[in-house]
Design a binder for these strands. Structure first.
Lengths: 284, 284
DNA sequence: GCATTAATGTAATTAAATTACATATGCAAC
DNA sequence: GTTGCATATGTAATTTAATTACATTAATGC
């Protein structure tokens, strides 16, 4: 757990003055990175040695050590100023905000991802008779991308972005088959229906979608994707990036599971990359 | 410039002992975050007040302030341990590595992106008679994604992932039209030919690809995408994520340029998002 | 080569952090 | 409810670190 989280943690058993200090620091951690024991003691209404003991109790060598750790942690946590784009923003600012949102989304998604869910999804994919990938709108291209990646494996993979074809194909799924749904909101009626249909037929349904969404409830395994900071405008953009990262993770785990294939895959990707590595001076 | 970069900067005019201190700290910055003036003075072979003056000269209030800044900066710079996935890695480790690579790729791409190039690309797109999007393999789904986003604008947009259709469509492009090529390596012969063809017909050619690649040389504007850390295996995965972020940036800038549309776009996305925000307890 | 300025060091001072010790508070057993 | 123990907190002393004041040395220009 991070230091700041530990300070804010109400379940931690702390003494009265420790609680005062925690509250005081949590309120504005940045303000306490450039302050002395005396000043902090004053502000928290405790004595100086209490501050010192507090730091020791948290596992630091003393107050300066604690301050250093706090400063480092504050620096580490992303700027997280991920804010909506304003009409007056410069091109550079727009780019920075977009990339920042993507970072935040990736970060949050990784935090929320549970290893056991990934493992379950990989199991289902690895053992599936056939794998069907579905998405609509922006998620359709994510599904296509997943198909591109999964084609390298000895799986029967199909991707559909047409809701008629999706339903037809889903009807054909049965036990041992696998449906991977991709949806930003997890509230697209067509996809939810599809998941339900596949599940009724006995297929394993995996969703890369918002945790806790209606789609998530229809699924065997849900890989939650977080939108990052709660900004209005660009969340669907960033979440799609996180979806891709989740797919990459599934593919990597799948590859890893099949050592021969893994090596082969590795070799192939290396071969594909070779031209990129070559000096760019020479033509072709 | 970062503090660490400033210390290592050989062009900076520094006194003899300042140079000694810079060298000493640059050698292992982390070691000096938990040390006293006396110890640093000893190690650098200078006196204590010299250390203090050195900190003041760098713009800090004193040695502790300097240490704090140094620690913060060290914490900030990414772990960057982006390494290849090993067969023995756990599921969680695989996920962490994949996401880390994505972070690195985004970071590097943003660093390398030039505002004037984005502006030029946005100009070309905004004023284009028709916009054609092309990519092959993994880049095909990125092109599809771009199409999905650009469809919201009053542009004539088409995306092709079939190399025959691509050539046919590119032949139809002329002055005032715009071709947006997406390629990881920038060495796909088919796409390079396409770019050349379109350019010959007078179209503006934009590429989202590796900077300095053959494709980049055929283009009016290149938006370079960095693969992140130079790891063998998963670079193409991460770079695709960065490609999407670049597209998002273009779309955002495009939206921003047309205030009415921007507002409309914003409203639309907000509307799309609304269901996500709603409490997830209620069904449908 | 001498004067002047900047750079560095020594020693003194101040401030901060830590320790030692005393007191108070809370809890359990009787 | 009181006694005893343990934990928590505070006061004061000590140590350590950081800073300042002043002296000395090295460097540069004339």
């Amino acid at each position: 757990m991070t230091l700041i989280a530990r300070l804010a943690d109400p379940t931690a058993r702390q003494s009265k003055s420790a609680r005062k200090l925690s509250a005081c620091i949590s309120a504005d951690p940045a303000a306490f990175t450039a302050i002395s024991t005396a000043a902090l003691a004053e502000l928290a209404g405790v004595s100086e040695p209490t501050v010192h003991r507090f730091c020791i109790a948290l596992g630091y060598k003393g107050f300066p050590d604690f301050k250093l750790a706090l400063a480092a942690e504050l620096a580490q946590r992303q700027p997280r100023i991920a804010r909506d784009i304003e009409p007056e923003d410069s091109t550079g600012t727009v780019a920075a905000k977009i990339f920042e949102a993507a970072h935040a989304s990736l970060h949050d998604t990784l935090q929320a991802l549970r290893a056991q869910d990934i493992a379950a999804a990989v199991d289902a994919l690895a053992n599936a008779g056939s794998v069907m990938l579905c998405g609509l709108g922006a998620s359709a291209s994510v599904a296509t991308d997943a198909q591109h990646k999964l084609l390298r494996f000895p799986l029967h993979v199909s991707a559909h972005s047409d809701i008629i074809n999706q339903r037809i194909a889903a009807t054909g799924l049965g036990g041992g088959d696998c449906l991977l749904c991709i949806s930003h909101s997890g509230r697209s009626e067509a996809i939810i229906e599809l998941a339900r249909l596949a599940a009724q037929n006995g297929a394993t349904v995996i969703a890369i979608t918002a945790a806790g969404s209606p789609l998530a409830r229809e699924c065997t395994v849900t890989l939650g994707v977080e939108g990052g900071e709660d900004t209005d405008i660009y969340t669907p953009m960033s979440s799609r990036i996180a979806q891709l990262a989740v797919i990459d993770t599934l593919v990597a785990c799948l590859a890893q599971r099949q050592p021969d294939l893994f090596a082969q895959h590795l070799e192939q990707v290396k071969r594909n990359l070779r031209p990129t590595r070559r000096g760019t001076r020479q033509r072709k």
